[in-house]
Computed example of a mutant assay.
Amino acid sequence: MEDYIKVLNFQPHKLPENYIADPDYAIKIFFSVHSIPQARQNICSLFRTWIKHINVYAEPSDILGMLLFHEQLIEFLEVSYIKGVKEGYLPKPTNEP
């Protein structure tokens, strides 16, 4: 566990030790609080807010970088959910609008 803490120590982090010991538990907690559609919507809202706030001052490369980050964050969210379902610690999806 100390190795993980060293890697995360380049900046302050707030991960509880049980999340470091069992990352699947953290994923389970996240998805018990946020549904996939809600999480996607929140990520998109954060991106839109950033664009509205910074677009006057941002370089095109900064906007492109943030767009790529936005897309990869949504992919990471979805892959994390699929991992949880496949490993059995998250419920199988239902048809949610």
Score class of each variant (00 low, 15 high):
M1V: 12
E2P: 07
E2F: 07
E2W: 06
D3A: 15
Y4R: 06
I5H: 05
K6V: 13
V7C: 04
V7F: 04
F10W: 09
F10A: 07
F10T: 05
Q11W: 11
H13I: 02
H13R: 01
K14D: 15
K14R: 08
K14G: 13
P16I: 10
E17R: 03
N18Y: 11
N18I: 11
Y19V: 11
Y19G: 12
Y19D: 12
A21Y: 07
D24Y: 05
Y25D: 10
Y25A: 13
Y25I: 11
A26M: 13
A26W: 04
I27V: 13
I27T: 09
I27K: 02
K28R: 14
I29R: 14
I29C: 14
F31H: 14
S32K: 10
H34V: 08
S35M: 09
P37Q: 06
P37V: 02
Q38F: 11
Q41V: 03
Q41A: 07
N42H: 08
N42S: 09
I43S: 02
I43C: 08
S45V: 07
L46D: 08
L46E: 09
F47V: 07
F47K: 01
T49Y: 06
T49E: 05
T49S: 05
T49R: 00
T49C: 01
W50E: 07
W50Q: 03
K52G: 08
H53I: 04
I54Y: 13
I54D: 11
I54C: 06
N55M: 11
N55W: 13
V56T: 14
V56M: 12
V56H: 08
A58S: 05
A58P: 00
E59W: 10
P60D: 14
P60R: 03
P60T: 08
S61L: 14
S61F: 15
S61H: 14
D62Q: 09
I63H: 00
I63R: 00
I63C: 00
L64H: 10
M66G: 01
M66T: 01
L67I: 01
L68M: 10
F69Y: 07
H70I: 04
H70V: 06
E71V: 14
E71H: 12
Q72R: 15
Q72F: 09
L73T: 07
I74Q: 15
I74S: 06
F76C: 12
V79T: 06
V79D: 10
V79L: 15
V79W: 05
V79F: 08
S80Y: 05
S80D: 09
Y81P: 09
I82G: 04
K83S: 02
K83I: 03
K83V: 03
K83H: 07
G84R: 03
G84Q: 05
V85M: 05
E87P: 00
E87N: 09
G88R: 00
G88S: 08
Y89C: 06
Y89Q: 06
P91N: 09
P93V: 12
T94Q: 03
T94Y: 02
N95M: 04
N95Y: 01
E96V: 14
E96T: 15
P97N: 10
P97F: 04
